[in-house]
């Protein structure tokens, strides 16, 4: 079944639920594993929380406003990072300042996700290294802005500016990608 699936789910199409899970389940499960494994969190519970919100919000999905993967990623991000922050408050995090920060998303050929993820990876690669660094700490490591400032030894305001600038530039790059897709 070709996507997008959310509008079908909003109309009550049960077969679209299975297709949606086949398309995005592995990605969300992978993200949940990456973010929450080792924190004693129930991965199934976290993934269910993400998908229940995705499906319950399906009627709000508007393709004119963004792609389906971006919509799902936004919800997954919000839910998973909330959980990670809750548990991370109880744990010390190993800082990895010298780690090479690069996009490493790999999605199987033929997936409807592939173009979006590839576009996100390209957009991320196009950022300046200082933007990539703070976003990697904030989104991949789940560090607070204060902890990032300490880790890379810059003022808090600089961290916030770099994060906002990086997110803006990502959004611009992805909007350009979406615009090209619409035009093609």
């Amino acid at each position: 079944m070709p996507g997008p699936f959310l509008q079908l789910i909003a109309r009550g199409d049960e077969t679209a639920v299975a297709a949606c899970l086949d398309e995005y389940g592995g990605m969300v499960w992978g993200l949940a594993e990456r973010y929450l494994k080792g924190f004693g969190e129930d991965l199934e519970d976290a993934v269910q929380e993400v998908f229940v919100e995705v499906w319950r919000s399906a009627a709000r999905f508007d393709p004119a406003m963004g792609s389906e993967p971006a919509f799902i990623a936004t919800i997954a991000h919000r839910r998973l990072i909330d959980r990670q922050r809750r548990v991370q408050a109880r744990r010390a995090v190993q800082l990895e300042d010298d780690r090479i920060i690069e996009s490493k998303a790999v999605v199987k050929d033929g997936s409807a996700l592939r173009d979006d993820v590839a576009a996100a990876a390209r957009a991320f690669e196009s950022l300046d290294s200082d933007e990539k660094q703070v976003l990697w700490y904030a989104l991949y490591q789940g560090l607070s802005h204060e902890r990032i400032a300490k880790a890379i030894n810059v003022p808090l305001g600089t961290v916030k500016t770099r994060i906002r600038r990086g997110l803006s530039r990502l959004r611009e790059a992805l909007s350009t990608h979406a615009g090209k897709e619409v035009a093609s």
């Binding site: 592995g26 990623a73 919800i75 997110l167 992805l174």
Partner: peptide, 23 residues
Amino acid sequence: FEASAGAAMFALGPQPQPLPSQV
């Protein structure tokens, strides 16, 4: 910005893992 952050998560994210069948 949340949409950008979600996209960045995908860009940085690990390879998708198959959903366990019971899940």
